[in-house]
Nucleic acid binder design. Structure first.
Lengths: 199, 199
DNA sequence: CAGCGAGGTTAGCGGTCGTTAACCTGGAGG
DNA sequence: CCTCCAGGTTAACGACCGCTAACCTCGCTG
């Protein structure tokens, strides 16, 4: 894991705050003035960093999808041949949980504001998402050969729903600690797949 | 189950179309003119039926939460004493799946646009949602006594995420039929709970 | 058959929002 | 020291949107 030590750039600040605000109140529910205020500058100042409000959302969504896919590919490559499919599936689940727990606003945006994108950006995001899903489907079917491909795809989407539920778990603190939550989610995801695979 | 035979009222038409549009493009992304057009009247005509756009969303969300809670209470009462906790849990899961499959737009709204409500309405909806969750938590803990209350609550929220993933499953037709999908979801939900309960 | 209310219509107001224009400023480089 | 540009500022424009006002028109009903 690469740890950043240098300060975040203004662009990164903006993206982070925009993600939080978009997740809280929806893309159309947030004004550029608010985003600016959140980073200490005022509305139109944002246009020195982004061509428009749409571009911020696009960069966020493309970034999320790309990051998920890249991480999954890396995990798949790291384990290829050496370890069994079970271990790969565990690694995929772990990666997705880390993302869901560490970047809740992004997870929220990811399946909520996709339709607000320009056509070309939306196509790109959907393509990345599809690749990510297909990668999971292959691994899941290797672990549970009884699953048909459509069933496996449905199961994967459903498990994403399960893992992405983290924003609904107590807003902060009330849940039993990050480690325990991650472990609970992991067990439940495996249990859900196992139940789906007992055709 | 009560089956309606009479034609839907204009109010009901409006609510249905508004739900669909809100789910597709978000509350702020839909104009009153579009909602009107969807039922064949034009924008301001809606104000003969609702005091404002907010009121439509409020009625939808309060209706959803109330319907879910009422259904769950009924299922709990029907089985009380007679059947085991396992059967009650199965009944709850079945009811939630029916709702998720039959009213996808409402399920989408339910956890997406809550923050767009007036304070009083939002409090009411949250209270109904909380009661619904607590009802599930009690049943789940009866079936899996090893689960602590916080863990059970997290597990319930996560299973809701799983069951509410239906809008993400193929937009229509591509999934293996309603019955098979319902059964798959049911099995996965039970599997997830079982895995959570093996503390 | 007069009257009236339910349920529409169109025009338009007031506010908000994304974006652009025009201007300012501090610090780095020759 | 002059220049320039990155990164701000405020003012303002145009579009859009929720909502109201004013008006119309049926179908009941006394």
């Amino acid at each position: 894991m690469v740890t950043r030590t240098d300060a975040p750039t203004r662009r990164e600040q903006i993206l982070k705050e925009a993600a939080r605000l978009f997740a809280e109140r929806g893309f159309h529910g947030v004004g550029v003035d608010e985003i600016g205020a959140a980073v200490g500058i005022s509305g139109p100042g944002l246009y020195r960093h982004f061509p428009g409000k749409d571009a911020m959302l696009a960069e966020l969504l493309v970034g999320i999808s790309g990051q998920l896919l890249t991480g999954a590919k890396r995990r798949l490559a790291e384990a290829d041949g050496q370890t069994g499919a079970e271990a790969v599936l565990d690694s995929l689940i772990e990666g997705h949980i880390d993302f869901a727990l560490d970047d809740r606003p992004l997870i929220t945006l990811h399946d909520r504001e996709l339709d607000r994108l320009r056509d070309s950006d939306r196509k790109l995001v959907r393509q990345l998402q599809r690749q990510y899903v297909e990668l999971w489907v292959e691994v899941v079917r290797e672990v549970y050969p009884a699953l048909s491909e459509p069933s496996a795809r449905s199961a994967v989407h459903s498990v994403f729903g399960l893992l992405n539920s983290t924003p609904h778990l107590g807003r902060a603190g009330t849940l039993p600690g990050r480690g325990a939550t991650a472990e609970l989610l992991h067990r439940m995801a495996r249990g859900a797949f196992a139940a789906a695979g007992s055709d």
